[in-house]
Write a protein that binds this DNA or RNA. Sequence first.
DNA 1: AAATGAATGTAAAAAAATTAACAAACACCA
DNA 2: TGGTGTTTGTTAATTTTTTTACATTCATTT
Lengths: 211, 211
Amino acid sequence: MGVEIKIPEATISRISVYSRYLVEVERQGIVNISSGEIAEGVGGTPAQVRKDLAYFGAFGTRGVGYNVRLLNQEIKEILGLSRQWDVILIGAGNLGSALSQYRGFRERGFNILAVFDNDMNKVGLKLNGLPIYAINQMADFIRENKVSIGIIAVPADYAQDVADILIDSEIEGILNFAPTVLTVPEEVIVRDVDLAVNLEVLTYNIENKDV
Amino acid sequence: MGVEIKIPEATISRISVYSRYLVEVERQGIVNISSGEIAEGVGGTPAQVRKDLAYFGAFGTRGVGYNVRLLNQEIKEILGLSRQWDVILIGAGNLGSALSQYRGFRERGFNILAVFDNDMNKVGLKLNGLPIYAINQMADFIRENKVSIGIIAVPADYAQDVADILIDSEIEGILNFAPTVLTVPEEVIVRDVDLAVNLEVLTYNIENKDV
DNA sequence: AAATGAATGTAAAAAAATTAACAAACACCA
DNA sequence: TGGTGTTTGTTAATTTTTTTACATTCATTT
């Protein structure tokens, strides 16, 4: 009977950015930070920062601000980053290769276990230290290793087939880099990263700067 | 004195996805399509599709739907894709390499002219057929070739320096893959593609599925 | 111990975006 | 030619998100 409080997706994106910024700030040895300083650091407004954080609790001290280390700890907890996330990557092409050694993932606690590809010239080899397996080994691997997330970095034509295997293997979430809309049951969470779409939003904004 | 009509950024993202879907539909030889069919194809609602399109004009025929080819033409015009976009890529690392040969860019009319990197072992070589130049050659190159967009794929620590050069060279837009917030003057449009943030929004959504 | 200053947390207001609803327009058929 | 069914374009309603404004709280100083 409790009132449902829906938290904007944009808030989640922003607190992830706050967290990344706080890591940097903590590294500089700064102990306390105000909403205004966070806003300045990430390009937002103080009110927005406070509002975003207030969805989850009262982490600050009035008149003082937020303790950098504690706030970052709270945010990581909110984002689900206090547990480790085991991830597999599907697609050992150029994009897959880039993602397999992307520092940002490891730094934030994501653990890529293996790469899957259907190219038999690649299967058995390593990609940036990660083993490459065939896609027909994927379902077993996911179950045996309790993999939570699959990152799809295959061409659009194969993406749904890959997704179907992931779904069958009871994956929890999919980060989809293929430029296509995936059909998944509602218990599987998908997030699309659409590179061309991003570029097109940019061109639109360039062309309509002044308007 | 005209009323300003602000178009949601989400609308721009969506029409870009519609366009990609229409390409596929057109390839299948389908001539007309309804808002409901588009919605089904991209995972949206018919009302949303119509509303998004209505910001820009009346492209359909009542009782019939939209002519696939014409609608796609209109959308591309809206997104600024009727002109060609000359792009450079900064960073010849793994991510830069992946982006340099990303099909989705070329398919949508983006033309990557060159890659820039500070690693002198790479300068002078080619990356997927594209010349690699030193970053100190970048400003001249941008002006001489009237480059509109720079794609930043360098580590976060160097991203602002690269951005500063792009800004000085009067670039129009920046697609930023570096996990950091760039400071730019307001006439330069930036769009961030933050890979770890996307993964963290995914983990949040997984952890809060049922709520 | 009271006063001052600073910055949070939140309630209320405003703005923005989405959804619903329906009249208008068109194709097709009898 | 008139009626029927379909689907758009648009207005209105609703929902969501952002912004504003300020009372509350805490640290510090006198």
